[in-house]
């Protein structure tokens, strides 16, 4: 009878310990280093400023701009309809539904690309899929879309066509960047949440 009591005591003890230690909630990485390298290598997360301008001019409803900079910078200037998620808050519960969804294409931007890329990498590690980075950031956006410089007359045709497009876009966005400053306080609706399946979990079944 003694071994049974002993065994019961051991299980009871193990149970008590596991009941009261906090659960291990460390979220492990979803992508291995190799997978990450591959994504970075192909730059598939990049969206060029021309592409973005085109979508914005056409008011494509499927894009969601996300400003990664601080609220202060955001208040000074931000792109139309952008949502402000400062990098330091990217893990906050309230943004999960925006960042982790399968409906809209999130385009992250900062002044350059560093902050946006950092945010993008974090989101990738969490396994989120619909996030992209604005190539060159706001600086390049201003340079190419808001104040495009005319190409030399000897440029190739497509260079000139690109300039024509940028000039048009510049007018659409109000030419000088200051005039875009009317910050619309429209809070965009939360997209419908798409729950992702657990990746790579083996298929069960008896």
């Amino acid at each position: 009878m003694i071994p049974r009591l002993l065994l019961s005591a051991v299980y009871f003890g193990l149970g008590i310990i596991i009941a009261f230690v906090p659960e291990n909630t460390t979220k492990p990485f979803r992508l291995t280093a190799e997978q990450m390298l591959n994504e970075v290598k192909y730059r598939s997360e990049m969206v060029s400023s021309d592409e973005l301008a085109d979508w914005m001019v056409n008011q494509d409803p499927s894009i969601q701009l996300i400003d990664i900079r601080t609220p202060k910078e955001f208040d000074q200037f931000h792109l139309e309809n952008a949502l402000n998620i400062p990098l330091s808050q990217i893990l906050d519960e309230e943004w999960i539904d925006f960042l982790d969804q399968g409906i809209k294409m999130n385009i992250l931007y900062s002044n350059g690309t560093t902050l946006a890329h950092e945010a993008w990498m974090i989101s990738r590690q969490l396994g989120y899929e619909n996030n992209y980075v604005l190539q060159g950031g706001l600086n390049y956006w201003t340079e190419t879309i808001l104040n495009p410089s005319a190409p030399s007359p000897y440029s190739a045709d497509d260079e000139i066509a690109k300039y024509e497009f940028r000039k048009g876009a510049s007018q659409y966005f109000g030419g000088e960047m200051k005039s875009t400053n009317e910050s619309k306080k429209t809070k965009t609706d939360k997209p419908i949440i798409k729950r992702r399946k657990k990746k790579k979990a083996p298929q069960g079944g008896c």
Binding site: P202, Q203, G204, G205, C206
Partner: peptide, 8 residues
């Protein structure tokens, strides 16, 4: 990552 089984 998976347990035991038989009927499968």
């Amino acid at each position: 990552g998976r347990g035991l089984g038989a009927s499968g």
